[in-house]
Design a protein around this nucleic acid. Sequence first.
RNA 1: GGCUCUAUCGUCUAUCGGCUAGGACAUAUCCUUUUCAAGGAUAGAAGCAGGGUUCGACUCCCUGUAGAGUCACCA
Length: 438
Amino acid sequence: MSSKVITRFAPSPTGFLHIGGVRTALFSYLYARQNKGIFALRIEDTDKARNKEEWTKGLVDDLAWLGLKHDNFSKQSDRTEIYKGYLKKLIDSGHAYVSKEIPKEEGERDEVIRFKNPNKKIIFTDLIRGEVTMDTTDLGDFVIARSIDEPIFHLAVVIDDFEMGITHVIRAEEHISNTPRQILIQEAIGATRPLYAHLPLVLATDKSKLSKRKHGETVSLTYYRNLGYLPEALLNFVAMLGWNPGTEQEIFSLAELVKEFDLSKVQKSGAIFNIEKLNWFNKKYIEMMDEKIFAETMKLFLPADVSDVTAMKLAPLLKEKISFFAQIPELLKNELSFVDAVVPYEREKLNWKQEKNTKEYIKKVIDLIGYIPEKNFTKEKVKEAVWLYAEEKGRGNVLWPMRYALSGMEKSPDPFIIAEILGKEETIKRLTAAYEAI
RNA sequence: GGCUCUAUCGUCUAUCGGCUAGGACAUAUCCUUUUCAAGGAUAGAAGCAGGGUUCGACUCCCUGUAGAGUCACCA
């Protein structure tokens, strides 16, 4: 019988879900799903001093937002009795002992439980790195519990992985040096050894491990979530950090990742988190977004004073411009500020290059679009009304002043879409103002 | 410092002994275009160093170098 694959993601609730954690969770999820296995979420909250219930909620919520559904959920704080049983057995069998200590720091006990280190060489196979050998001698008799009721990380991990039947421990590279001592504990309690896969680290631009202390809030998923990055884009981006299918495909849905992901193709070296690439992925996913969903999401980032009608007209424009939603207010304030009011402009700039007949062109444009019924004032209709004339007189000669009169800016979207956004009345008003100014 | 891991364009990476070293992001230029953006095209840009092994090494081995991780009564 081949045992069913069971993977787990085991964060500690001491802060926001870390971007590296996102990838660890994703790879564990992918591996479980592609093998029709189980993906477990386990909250490692043995350190009472640092944990907060709200972080647990945040972790669960973030994972749900990403679409990484877990099949079962557990919390180490619910399992102290179980650890206690193992701890007793370990002490009775001589694998562990109560040790008198001299507390070095505040909060430290004068009595802890240490593991009796057999001081041997541990060799384990890592699915990504191959064979790793370490001598546990230099570990000494390490602490496995603060007291009989308070196990620490190493003990709890081993017991849980064993009891939950975890077959594949997929975790970050920083745990590689913890593995030998965990294997020692496994052997002492008679647990089977899971398969290990230590993922390369996600690095900051300076090549150091992304850490909250050093790199601030930009290491948390929440940060990107709040900026309006899409979960699909984040997942896709993070998946390509350290893994690739060996083909030239870059855009992958979660379902495709489940199909294509290959643990043995995971990179050995750390990957720098490159925001530019994330932006590119996110832009691609925004392009693929359904219009309605885009509009709804967009509203969350729109300043309160933008009316729903204007918002709807703005949507297609914004959709092709932004990389992430939080860029919207800034865009509205600068590039798209003409929506609210005429931007004061320089009269001479109404002329396309050295053109002298601008006044005449503007007049004609006002006439042409005047025939369009107000309720039918769309960018297609406006273009239709003006296009032939523009072709005749030279597109630049006609369209540049039209656009400049409407936006007051040298760079802006095309005049037709601006006209639609402004509406007939405002469009004619602005064109007339330009006509009179020149 | 000990232990461990890692090492191809600026960044993410392909190559599992045959390479004119491929792709993507970013950058630059050009085209398209009323401007911007988008789109299209093109360009520049890499095998850490030194030894082996081999007909042939980016690929395998060794040494060095560099970087990272870890050395808690955190996880």
